Simulated assay, not measured.
Amino acid sequence: MNTNNVTVQLVTIADDEAGQRIDNFLRTRLKGVPKSMIYRIVRKGEVRVNKKRIKPEYKLQAGDEVRVPPVRVAERDEAPVSARLDKVAALDDCILYEDEVLLVLNKPSGTAVHGGSGLSFGVIEGLRALRPEARFLELVHRLDRETSGVLLVAKKRSALRSLHEQLRLKGMQKDYLALVRGHWQSHVKAVQAPLLKNVLQSGERIVRVNAEGKPSETRFKVEERFAFATLVKASPVTGRTHQIRVHAQHAGHPIAFDDRYGDREFDGQLTETGLNRLFLHAAALRFEHPASGETMRIEAPMDNTLRRCLSVLRDKYKA
């Protein structure tokens, strides 16, 4: 066994830690401990706030005294991060911008933003391993595992709150690039279709257009045309799971190499380009800096696979 926390800890909540749920606080505090174990110790009353039992949704207040019990987890729970030191080191090269309150990453395709669903390693775990001295590192938003590009991470709770507020008020502009099947009609500038999320028995998430779903909108703009494909800029107005992928499919133009909503025949047409991953890339993010108020626009370059694909299409199939 590997001991994470061998003695009872009494932690006083600072001003910048106030407002977060106790379960999220414990997940940050007890890195590597499974979520199920955190809920168990809260439910059993081993975690106390001001000497009283609390529920997982309890929101911490400045000055609260939290009792964090000793927690032991099997070594296999931590091994994956150490076994992926190469991935952790590679994340350092992916940082596009960093200051005292936030960090912006060009997330590689194939890397999850966080562990879970059978994955023990994700970007956030990697960053915490890379920055062991950081008291606070939390994802501001998410990207699908196969999607690459701009990912925002807060280094202070106040920054997280500010950026979440911008997301809620739709003050953050996200622009993605996607290669889709066929000839996207220029007059189709937006797709508005409600999305309903279903979780299959396997735990896989599938999203469908459904009248009972949540209102969703994505704006599209043609960037480049090829004989049998179109490169589009997709800007989500809402932020639903798999939104761009499902809206592109709903419009009749599934994204290249989308293993859930794609078209195998279209993927086959792209064989000579060497493409072997979802062609969806978070190319740019515009937001207001949570400390200075300055308007920031961060761009993320495409990886070699996407660049090569476009190069071959331009050479052979330019419309």
Rank of each mutant, 00 (worst) to 15 (best):
L200V: 04
R128Y: 03
G239K: 11
G126Y: 01
R131D: 06
L26T: 02
I38C: 10
L177E: 13
R225M: 07
R277Q: 13
R168V: 04
D303A: 04
V222Q: 07
R48D: 08
L119I: 01
R84W: 10
T28V: 01
Y261N: 00
V150S: 11
Q201C: 13
G293S: 10
L60F: 07
E265H: 09
S82K: 12
T28C: 00
D315G: 14
Q166R: 09
M172A: 10
L231R: 00
K59A: 06
H141F: 07
A178S: 09
A62D: 06
N50E: 09
S216F: 05
L313E: 00
T241C: 03
F257C: 09
Q185T: 12
G293N: 12
P132S: 08
K35V: 14
R48T: 14
V88K: 03
R40H: 14
R181D: 13
L163H: 05
R84G: 15
M37F: 11
L195I: 13
K35D: 06
L139Y: 00
D267S: 07
G32E: 08
K87R: 14
A154V: 11
Q185V: 13
N276L: 00
M302G: 03
Y261D: 04
V81I: 15
D86E: 14
L152H: 02
A282S: 15
E17Y: 01
P34R: 00
Y39R: 05
E294K: 14
V8Y: 04
G262E: 02
E217S: 11
R205Y: 10
I124S: 10
H253W: 02
E46W: 06
T3E: 15
E165V: 11
F220L: 11
V207G: 03
L143M: 12
D144Q: 06
D86M: 04
K107W: 03
G203R: 09
F266L: 08
G293L: 12
Q201P: 15
V66Q: 08
L91E: 02
F257W: 05
L270N: 05
P80L: 09
C309L: 01
G213C: 08
G213E: 06
V188S: 02
Q20P: 02
T7S: 15
V81H: 07
H250M: 00
I38F: 06
T7A: 15
F226K: 06
L10Q: 15
H247D: 03
K221E: 14
V246P: 05
G122R: 05
V222I: 14
E223D: 10
R240P: 09
